[in-house]
Design a protein around this nucleic acid. Structure first.
Length: 293
DNA sequence: CCACGATCCTGCTAGC
DNA sequence: TGCTAGCAGGATCGTG
């Protein structure tokens, strides 16, 4: 399930196929994947003739900057992926939308469950934030950050553990630490896989109240999140389920300690079997010996 | 305001 | 063997 490392990999591997290309046409036969605008023909009018000048990532969202200042964004959510194929060539299953590019290729969105979302912002200015915590994407009309609802980027070198002090904020303090990690308002890019991995690595039980973590535990947790996400990016993400970037499946699944390993022995204590529980409605794997409430 | 569950959607699989 | 109920979970929305 694409989380930060998977989406980062998708954005990187997309670049050589789309940078500098103009958009000849756009199609979408499943408007459910469209956020704004919702009408495929409206979006086609906005996109046609535009050139893709940059691709990047914010949280679990891929960004395409266009030459007229617009921004096209795609959030793959659960099952969204990209396919590049010659324009008009036979479709794979579940292809829902496509951009025909000026080099004769077509960038298609393939999404079995159609949870992914394509959005268009007419005029967005990207600039480094004053705090030095990565880029801000500002609506040129209102000046507002179009991603204001998203928390900081864990891999940004300027994001430090002080952001974790927000754990004690009332909004997060009373919820399980795992739920806070999954909350994109709190920290951006962490999903079920890397939340479980980070908590296991720091021996923190996912059901601990976020506000109960000591400063030291908070710092260790943040360091673990960053480390694990970096390693996962290096391995091009985890291919569990159907995630796949243009460069093929990732390798991080071979290095996961808990996710998908319920019933297997904990690789840390080597004496206890991992168990699966539900936290905040999400499947969660822990080592009951290493992670105590 | 908050916590929790339902919802979206389809493929896969455990279990009968 | 074949069918089906239930699960998978990112994000949002509705309910108690």
């Amino acid at each position: 399930m694409p989380e930060l490392p998977e989406v980062e990999t998708m954005a990187r591997e997309l670049r050589p196929y789309v940078l500098g290309r103009a958009i000849r046409s756009f199609w979408c036969d499943r408007p459910a994947i469209l956020g704004e605008p919702k009408d495929p023909h409206t979006l086609e009018t906005l996109l046609t003739g535009r050139r893709i000048v940059a691709t990047s990532r914010r949280a679990k969202i891929i960004l395409f900057a266009l030459d007229d200042g617009a921004l096209l964004t795609y959030a793959p959510r659960m099952t969204g992926q990209f396919v590049v194929a010659p324009a008009g060539s036979p479709h794979e299953s579940h292809e829902r939308a496509g951009l025909e590019l000026s080099d004769g290729m077509e960038l298609r969105i393939r999404d079995a469950r159609t949870f992914g979302r394509l959005n268009y912002y007419a005029s967005v200015r990207a600039e480094p934030s004053e705090e030095g915590e990565g880029m801000r994407y500002l609506d040129a009309r209102t000046g507002g950050d179009i991603f204001a609802a998203l928390g900081p980027e864990p891999l940004d070198p300027h994001t430090n553990e002080t952001v974790m002090l927000r754990l004690s904020a009332r909004k997060y303090a009373n919820q399980p630490i795992k739920s806070a990690l999954l909350d994109q308002h709190f920290i951006a890019g962490v999903g079920n896989i890397y939340a479980d991995e980070s908590l296991w690595a720091t021996k923190i039980h996912p059901q601990r109240k976020a506000g109960s973590l000591s400063l030291k535990e908070t710092q260790r947790l943040f360091a673990a999140i960053r480390k694990i996400l970096e390693v996962a990016v290096d391995h091009r993400g985890s291919t569990v389920g159907n995630y796949r970037s243009l460069g093929g499946p990732g390798r991080m699944q071979q290095h996961l300690a808990v996710y998908g390993r319920a019933g297997a022995l904990c690789v840390a204590c080597e004496e206890t079997r991992l168990v699966k529980l539900k936290v905040g409605g999400r499947g969660t794997v822990i080592c009951p010996h290493c992670q105590k409430l």
